[in-house]
Design a protein around this nucleic acid. Structure first.
Length: 802
RNA sequence: GCCGGAGUGGCGGAACUGGCAGACGCGCCGGACUCAAAAUCCGGUGUCCCUCGGGACGUGCGGGUUCGACCCCCGCCUCCGGCACCA
């Protein structure tokens, strides 16, 4: 028998597939399609074990779906612009283009080495002008519609990466998603996409996609819808109506003071040294510091706000527990029913008035904070007394609405997407600034605005592109006068918001894509990637598609019909992620064990949606299985004569395995148990090499393992006399062969297993019960008595109740 | 605080729709082959008791429903993750 040589076999079949164009798909066919896509990698280093997981999942599904007759689009590309690639380049002292392109080359080699079935003819890199040209084109369409705009706003600044970040790129602990540095707040003029216009659609359409509940929940959290009312309070001394947002209009009669955020626009009109001093100190505090403050701080302004429901004059404070970027930056404070307001009232000795009481509770005359309770009713609220809180709140807002002092409203936590970056390595924003005309879009026929090659690209706070004088200075497309190009670049999440559309029509030179191929292939039927993009990429891409749909460029509202979120892969102590440096990659494992063993191992470690640890012993165990498969099947190929499989136990096992593996891959995405099922089949084959069904069992095992281990499968398939396994129809289980002719039936007494009977599958119930009762072990537990009741589950068990 | 998810052998995990708990693999123990080792193959491996027939217990904890519960219901505990001075 030939020795199993994974290196030679894998190279051989990769060549065969490439020569045959095995994974190339055309846009012309109109078979039932499937678009299988994994999140594209940042080429900031080499592949790690996490990539091995994501891309192998996609590959197994791709190869499986192709063999059940679907037309499968499975492309791959590189998210090559942006901080990860740029920071890696800076670390190595190489120009980002050079390092990025070198990494792409390396990763591409690794991907081919892994045997992943991609249609490379559709590949793209986001730093290619042929790609970002069309991104600039789309940006201009957004700009025309007012969906891209520039404004001064408080933004998140990463002092280490020297750039603005989107809210989504700031982690819960106030640190930079990329580098972990503590993020600062800055007031800057920036480019934004008006994603908040789509907040409700982004929420509603989550109902239409098949995603894990946890991912949907994260997006709902992030969008943060709350229903309530906006109410106008008049600040007498400034003669201004100030809106506040509240989710508890039922507590309006309980407002005893009023608070402005230190950054509120009216605060600078307050002529008070105390206020100015407080605002200065509050501004110096970092956001997490403000959030974790245990004591409430603030300062009285001397102003008064009039409560529109009862005309009461409430003292106005400035306090930093009120945030400028949520709601309106001003609140009515109801200390009896809001813990934070209560804390502030306690510190400043302000009155507390209960206006809602629990159904069975009293009004607390000692006035303290009152817990929210089910069924509570209004008190101390004039004509609304006695109403249930929810109805009372509604009636109060209706009254305010009639007086034009308030309205029902919905508030979202989601902020507009700040997408400009003060960095070099990104897509240039195609506008110029003209003294006479202001912001002027670059005309479509002058696209792409190519990112110039500059030597000093390191981040320094100001955009590096500003130094490229030749590039920056242009004439205004409108008036011809002197103008300057925009020197900020786009966030890399813009690049990844539409790449999956470009794959459908990757060679298009006259548009981002044509509608027909995009509508044929899309939406993505199965999208695979990590949870870490749940509130960044996955929200932006949904927004982008909705806008393009509104622009009539495509015919669907959601980019990813189904999402599979893969787990984290760790190796030893280290987390395999873009943040961990110097890790051992799959390349080395491919060399030692072959790609097939690696692909099998990563999916056998556990459910692909769960975190897992890659260990040396696990891959060695899998290498053992692969060698055994080779040996057992090779022996069958050499010795076992071709003959009909018959109906013996091995043939039946093979059919059951077909059913199991098809269901595990096709429906359950239970990749680990499908492998276990093939292992069982191989074990049985090994024990019965002379069974008439040996050849059939060997063929079946090879055919079923092909999506996971395509190289050894092709090689063994050809040893068994077949060819082009990747094109062979997926095996079909014969329903008649799924049932055993003799089955094991469990006999229980009072639900406890007392015996097992081997009986013919078609045994009559009476006969089965008789046999069960006759069992000595059962007799012993029946104590000679008659069963009170007998439960029969056909084909499974008999239970006597005594 | 709100939201989402998970708790099963020494380990990773399986049990899909309420019907044999622990598939498959790792590790470990014993054996075969070998001068020896590796590789490979065979057998064993939840815990406790045992007269070796078997018996009792066992899926985070406490209850419940059911002939029967890892699975459904109620109440807890622990862990992981998201959001959060969000009005």
């Amino acid at each position: 028998m030939e020795r199993y040589d994974p290196q030679a076999i894998e190279a051989k079949w990769q060549r065969v597939w490439a020569d045959a164009g095995a994974f190339h798909v055309s846009n012309e066919e109109r078979r039932p399609k499937s678009y299988v896509l994994e999140m594209l990698p940042y080429p900031s280093g080499t592949l790690h074990v996490g990539h091995l997981l994501v891309y192998t999942i996609g590959d197994v599904v791709t190869r499986f779906r192709a063999r059940i007759g679907m037309h499968v689009l499975h492309p791959q590309g590189f998210d090559s612009f942006g901080l990860p690639a740029e920071n890696a380049a800076i670390r190595e002292g190489v120009h980002p283009r050079a390092s990025t392109e070198r990494n792409i080359e390396h990763i591409t080699r690794s991907m081919r080495r892994a045997g992943w079935a991609y249609d490379w003819s559709r590949s793209l890199t986001t730093h290619d002008p042929g790609y970002y040209r069309w991104q600039q084109w789309q940006f201009l369409r957004f700009l025309e519609r007012g969906l891209a705009y520039r404004k001064g706003a408080p933004v998140k600044w990463c002092p280490n990466d020297q750039t603005v970040l989107a809210n989504e790129q700031v982690l819960a602990d106030g640190r930079c998603e990329r580098c972990g540095a503590e993020v600062e707040a800055r007031l800057m003029e920036q480019w934004f996409f008006r994603i908040t216009d789509y907040a409700q659609a982004l929420l509603d359409d989550l109902e239409t996609v098949d995603w894990p509940e946890s991912i949907k929940a994260r997006q709902r959290n992030w969008i943060g819808r709350s229903e309530g009312a906006e109410v106008l309070f008049r600040i007498e001394e400034l003669d201004e109506d100030v809106p506040v947002f509240t989710t508890r209009p039922d507590t309006l009669y309980g407002a005893t003071f009023f608070v402005l955020a230190p950054e509120h626009e009216l605060v600078e009109r307050i002529d008070s040294d105390d206020v100015r001093e407080y605002v200065r100190r509050a501004g110096a505090k970092k956001t997490p510091e403000r959030a974790q403050a245990t004591e409430k701080t603030g300062v009285f302004t001397g102003l008064h706000a009039v409560n529109p429901v009862n005309g009461e004059r409430l003292p106005v404070y400035v306090a930093d527990y009120v945030l400028t970027d949520y709601g309106t930056g001003a609140i009515m404070a109801v200390p009896a029913h809001d813990q934070r307001d209560f804390d502030f009232a306690s510190a400043f000795e302000l009155p507390v008035r209960q206006v809602v009481r629990p159904p069975d509770g009293d009004v607390d005359e000692t006035v303290a904070y009152v817990e929210h309770a089910e069924g509570e009713v209004l008190v101390n609220s004039a004509e609304f007394d006695g109403l249930p809180a929810s109805e009372g709140g509604r009636r109060i807002v209706e009254k305010l609405e009639a007086e034009r002092r308030g309205a029902f409203t919905i508030n979202y936590r989601l902020r507009d997407w700040g997408f400009s970056r003060q960095r070099y390595w990104g897509c240039p924003i195609p506008v110029v600034y003209c003294d006479a005309c202001g912001i002027v879009p670059v005309p479509d026929d002058e696209l792409p605005v190519v990112l110039p090659q500059i030597e000093d690209y390191k981040p320094k706070g100001a955009p590096p592109l500003a130094q490229a004088d030749d590039w920056v200075n242009v004439s205004c497309p409108e008036c011809g006068g002197p103008a300057r190009r925009e020197t900020e670049t786009m966030d890399t999440f813009v690049d990844s918001s539409w790449y999956f559309l470009r794959y459908c029509d990757a060679a298009n030179e006259t548009a981002p894509f044509d509608r027909a191929p995009v509508d044929y292939w899309s939406p993505v039927d199965l999208y695979i990637g990590g949870v870490d993009h749940a509130t960044m990429h996955m929200i932006y891409a949904r927004f982008w598609v909705k806008v393009l749909n509104d622009l009539d460029m495509l015919g669907f509202r959601e980019p990813f019909a189904r999402f599979f979120s893969n787990g984290w892969v760790t190796m030893g102590e280290k987390k395999m992620s873009k943040r961990a440096g110097n890790i051992v990659g799959p390349d080395e494992f491919f060399e030692r064990y072959g790609a097939d063993a690696c692909r099998l191992n990563i999916l056998f470690l556990g459910p692909a949606s769960e975190d897992m640890e890659w260990t040396e012993t696990s891959i060695e165990g899998m290498a053992r299985f692969v060698r055994r498969l080779w040996r057992v099947v090779s022996e069958v190929a050499e010795r076992a004569p071709e003959r009909p499989p018959g109906e013996g136990p091995l043939a039946r096992k093979a059919h059951r395995t077909i059913a199991k593996v098809s269901d595990d891959i096709g429906r359950r995405f239970a990749f680990n148990t499908a492998i276990a099922a093939v292992m069982e089949l191989v074990n049985e084959l090994q024990r019965a090499p002379d069974d008439p069904a040996a050849r059939f069992a060997a063929e079946t095992a090879v055919s079923l393992i092909q999506p996971y281990a395509p190289h050894i499968a092709e090689e063994l398939w050809s040893k068994l006399g077949g060819e082009r396994l990747w094109e062979q129809p997926w095996p079909q289980a014969d329903p008649a062969m799924l049932a055993e002719d003799t089955i094991e039936v469990v006999v229980q007494v009072n639900g406890k297993v007392r015996d097992r009977l081997h009986v013919h599958a078609e045994i009559a119930e009476e006969e089965l019960v008789a046999q069960a009762r006759a069992s000595e072990r059962v007799q012993a537990h029946l104590d000679g008595g008659e069963p009170r009741k007998t439960i029969i589950v056909p084909g499974k068990l008999v239970n006597f109740v005594v």
